[in-house]
């Protein structure tokens, strides 16, 4: 395996007055490798620190101690600009209401500054078309539906053509039909590219994990440990109701109950 991201021996805790020792430990000597070009799903219960991991990978959050936060063989702490290779899709769209969907995408392009300016227009057109928003890119966020806003936030990330895409429960607040459509759009986009990007996707939805992942990393409640690591070698496109996906889902539920101590 070629690790695209490697987190080595991470310790992270926060002050918490309600605990006897005054601290809540999230990670203790925690390590994780994420394979290049994989669709890695971090699966775990709420509060186990899944989103925190994305923030550590992105450099937005510094752990108390860490032997390494390594991207492509270089430590992020010595080369903070490595995080410009990453783009974030959040739980909510987090679009700026005074900018059109296209201007929001441009806002991300200008910020990360990895794409040459002369390519911006073509990239914006290309990816808005790819997610079915070709005609809606000039509308403002309040003029479109929640699903369209979230698609626009995916475009804001994707136009940067990032090497690593960090996605933090991006479909959790959408209704099931819209979420299913979003998963289809995302996997189409990802599988359509010759050299696949590395996606790190956080969810607590087991069905979603089974449908999307090439790699599943299951975490226990905090202090988090990896309790299961599993590859999912199923062909694309995948259907949520296919026997293979359902079998993976069942296995994950079983593992959750057995190893993370959470029953269903």
């Amino acid at each position: 395996m070629i690790p695209k991201v490697s987190l080595d021996n991470i310790d992270l805790s926060f002050p918490d007055a309600s605990r006897p020792d005054g601290r809540k430990v999230i990670y203790e000597d925690f390590s994780l490798q994420i394979e290049k070009g994989s669709f890695t799903v971090l699966l775990g219960p709420s509060g186990c620190g899944k989103s925190t991991l994305l923030n550590i990978i992105n450099g937005l959050l510094k752990p108390n101690t860490a032997r390494g936060i390594v991207i492509d063989g270089t430590d992020l702490r010595s080369e903070p600009d490595l995080s410009r290779q990453m783009a974030y899709v959040f739980q909510g769209p987090r679009l700026l209401r005074w900018k059109t969907l296209a201007e929001n995408a441009e806002f991300g392009l200008r910020g990360l500054g990895v794409q040459p300016r002369e390519k911006w227009r073509d990239l914006i057109d290309k990816y808005f078309r790819a997610v079915g928003l070709g005609d809606a890119q000039h509308l403002y966020p309040h003029q479109v539906s929640g699903g369209m806003r979230q698609r626009a936030s995916i475009v804001r990330a994707w136009v940067n053509e990032p090497q690593i895409l960090l996605m933090d429960e991006p479909f959790s607040h959408l209704d099931e039909i819209t979420a299913a459509e979003m998963r289809r759009i995302l996997t189409n986009l990802w599988t359509s590219e010759e050299e696949r990007r590395t996606i790190v996707f956080v969810t607590h939805d087991i069905s979603e994990a089974a449908q999307l992942a090439t790699d599943i990393i299951m975490l226990t409640p905090a202090p988090s440990k990896i309790c299961l690591r599993r590859k999912v070698d199923l062909p694309w496109p995948r259907r949520m109701d296919s026997d293979e996906v359902i079998a993976v889902e069942k296995e994950l539920r079983h593992a959750f109950a057995e190893r993370a101590g959470i029953g269903f």
């Binding site: 937005l60 974030y88 987090r94 806002f107 991300g108 910020g111 500054g113 960090l166």
Partner: peptide, 13 residues
């Protein structure tokens, strides 16, 4: 705070 975090993650400075 969500929007501030978005700006940070996209290096908007």
């Amino acid at each position: 705070k969500d929007l501030l975090e978005m700006c940070d993650s996209y290096h908007v400075r």
